[in-house]
Simulated scan of single mutants.
Amino acid sequence: MQTVFYARVSTTDQTIEHQQRQAEDAGHRFDRVFMDDGESGINKKLADRPAGKEMMGYLRAGDSLVVRWIDRLGRNYEDVTSNIRELLERGVIIKTIINGMVFDGSTTDPMQKAVRDALVAFMSAMAQAQGEATKIAQRAGIEHAKAFEGEAKYKGRKPAYNRAQLATVRDGLGHGMRAMELAKQTGLSRSTIYRIKDDYIAAEKALATWGK
């Protein structure tokens, strides 16, 4: 039985190293690591990502798959639920770093399976909704930054965070993490975490305005 870690980042997301460090800090150790770097897009399936495709072909019954959250296995509802269902049917155990969720593909109890599958469906829908909201915020930030091009306008205070930190805060808040936990994880102050929480679009605009 193997323990596998799969990480995926886009150009505007966390770094691969950050995701792996989070997993190791949570006590996970791996026999094999698969990584897709710069592979993004809500409509891009896991099977179309090189490492994702290889990982899906590698896992067997009894193996454990560790991911930061289930949105690493797809960014739209159909892809996430399809991939998770396939892995669970093989008998693979899926573990998330955020919230410490465990989806046991070896269970045969019908009630446990029903609860598990309902939770997977809910979390998959949340993953797509969050991905779409993030894209909207990023587009708003880009449009805001364009307004400054060629014009001597006041940019405002330089952001105290980078894009990887913003992604961590965004995902953590979306999954119910407390500001104190996120401050410790990112090195940001709690007041910065709260400002991002209060207006995520403004946080994206600030990064875009400063060219980050």
Rank of each mutant, 00 (worst) to 15 (best):
L87T: 02
F148E: 03
M111D: 15
V80H: 02
T15H: 02
M180P: 12
R21S: 15
D79C: 02
S191R: 09
D25R: 09
M123E: 13
T168Q: 12
P50L: 08
F5Y: 14
L73Q: 05
K53E: 13
E89I: 03
V66N: 01
R190C: 03
R32T: 00
D171L: 02
A137R: 11
V67D: 07
E132D: 09
G156P: 04
S64R: 14
A26N: 15
V9I: 11
A121L: 03
T168W: 09
G150A: 06
G174R: 07
K158S: 10
D198C: 00
T192I: 09
R68D: 14
T3K: 12
E89T: 11
T192F: 05
T186D: 04
G38K: 06
K45Q: 14
K155V: 05
H144Y: 13
M123R: 13
G52W: 09
S124I: 01
K45W: 15
D25V: 02
Q128I: 03
V67N: 01
R178V: 13
D71W: 13
Y161N: 07
D109W: 15
R75Y: 09
S10N: 02
A179I: 07
V120F: 11
R68F: 15
R68K: 14
E24A: 03
N76S: 07
S106M: 13
K113H: 12
M56W: 10
R68P: 07
A206M: 13
V9L: 09
K153N: 07
M177D: 02
R195S: 10
A208R: 04
V115Q: 15
N162S: 09
A127R: 05
A208H: 05
A133H: 06
Q22Y: 08
D79Q: 00
G131K: 00
T15C: 03
K44C: 08
V33I: 12
R8K: 12
A114G: 14
F103A: 00
N99H: 14
R49N: 00
I97L: 11
L88Q: 03
G38T: 06
Y77N: 10
R72I: 15
Q20L: 15
N99A: 07
R170P: 00
A47H: 13
A203I: 05
A206K: 12
V4H: 02
D13K: 06
N99T: 08
K212N: 14
F5K: 08
G141A: 01
G174E: 04
E181V: 12
T107D: 11
D71E: 11
T134N: 08
A127F: 08
Y161S: 02
G91R: 06
Q19C: 07
V80K: 01
E89N: 13
A140R: 12
Q22K: 10
M177C: 09
T96M: 10
Q185A: 13
P110L: 06
T96Q: 05
M111V: 15
V67R: 01
A208L: 01
K135C: 01
S106P: 00
H28K: 03
E54T: 03
I94S: 02
F34M: 01
F30C: 04
R32I: 01
A118Y: 06
Y77G: 10
D37V: 08
D36E: 11
S64Y: 14
V9H: 02
G172S: 04
M55F: 09
H28Q: 08
A26L: 08
L166V: 02
G74Q: 03
A51I: 04
D13R: 04
L119G: 05
